Structures are given as C-alpha cells and as structure tokens.
Amino acid sequence: MKRIALISMIAGLAVFATAAAQQPVRDVSARRHPNLAAAQRLVDQAYKRVVDAQQANEFDLGGHAARAKELLDQANNELKQAAEKSNEDHR
C-alpha cells in the first residue's frame, strides 16, 4: 500500500513538473502591444485552468487536456510572432 502511494506521488510530481515547465511564457510587451499582451495573459490563464482540471481529474482526461495545452502553447507562440511582425513593420 505504501509503495502504491509513493509511486502515485512520484508520478503526480513528474506530471506537475512537466506541466509547469511547459507553461506559456508571457513575453509580448504590454506597452507596445497591449491587445496581444492581454491575449497572452488570457492564454496563460486558460493553460492554468487546464492544469487545474487535470489535477482535479487525476490527469484522466483522455489526452484532450494535454492536447489543449499544446494548442494554447501554439496560440501563445503565434501571438509572439504577431508582435514581432508588427515590430518589423513599424521600424
């Protein structure tokens, strides 16, 4: 029984560490791009809610939550690229 609890705890910590390491970075300047920065903030909030849902459901969401996190990370990267494109166009 103790072994099962230990294995579950280690697995949970590993998944949590992986989720925390992949969390989208908010790196768009709010001063230069307030709307894109706000969108990044919302992506970050959505990502955190997905992590919360995974933890509440013991990560048993059929891979859909993990896929949602991947798509949120992709959206975050697109927002960064949009800001960079705007910077290039307005130099």
Rank of each mutant, 00 (worst) to 15 (best):
V28E: 00
R41P: 01
Q23Y: 08
E78K: 14
R3T: 15
A82G: 01
S86W: 09
L13T: 01
V15F: 05
E58Y: 14
F59I: 03
Q22D: 02
P24W: 11
N35E: 15
R26A: 10
T18C: 02
F59K: 05
V50I: 15
A19H: 02
K69D: 06
Q22C: 11
R41Y: 05
A83E: 08
R31Y: 10
D89G: 02
A83I: 06
D44I: 00
V15Y: 03
V51K: 06
A83P: 03
L61M: 11
N57D: 06
A68N: 02
K80C: 00
R26D: 08
N77K: 14
A5P: 00
M9H: 12
N57M: 09
D60I: 11
S8L: 10
F59S: 09
G62I: 07
K48D: 15
H90T: 11
N87V: 07
P24G: 10
A14N: 02
A75N: 04
A68F: 08
D44P: 03
Q22A: 11
L79Y: 09
L36V: 15
I10D: 01
Q55N: 04
A82E: 15
N35S: 13
H64G: 03
D89I: 03
Q40K: 10
S8K: 15
K80Y: 12
L72G: 12
D27V: 10
S29M: 08
A39L: 14
A5W: 07
L79P: 00
I10S: 06
Q22V: 14
G62F: 02
T18P: 01
G12R: 06
L71I: 10
L61N: 11
A14H: 08
L71V: 10
A38P: 02
A11D: 05
A65N: 01
A11W: 03
R41T: 15
R49Y: 03
Q40N: 10
Q55L: 13
I10Y: 04
R41W: 10
A37E: 06
A83D: 07
V51A: 03
A53W: 05
V43D: 05
M9G: 00
K85W: 05
Q40F: 05
S8F: 04
R31Q: 10
A56Y: 03
R67Q: 15
K2M: 06
E70C: 00
A56I: 04
R31V: 12
R32V: 09
A82D: 08
Y47K: 02
L36A: 14
K80V: 14
L6K: 14
V15G: 00
Q23R: 15
T18N: 10
R41F: 03
A14Q: 05
G63A: 13
A83M: 07
H64Y: 08
V51P: 04
D60S: 13
M9D: 13
K48Q: 15
A83R: 07
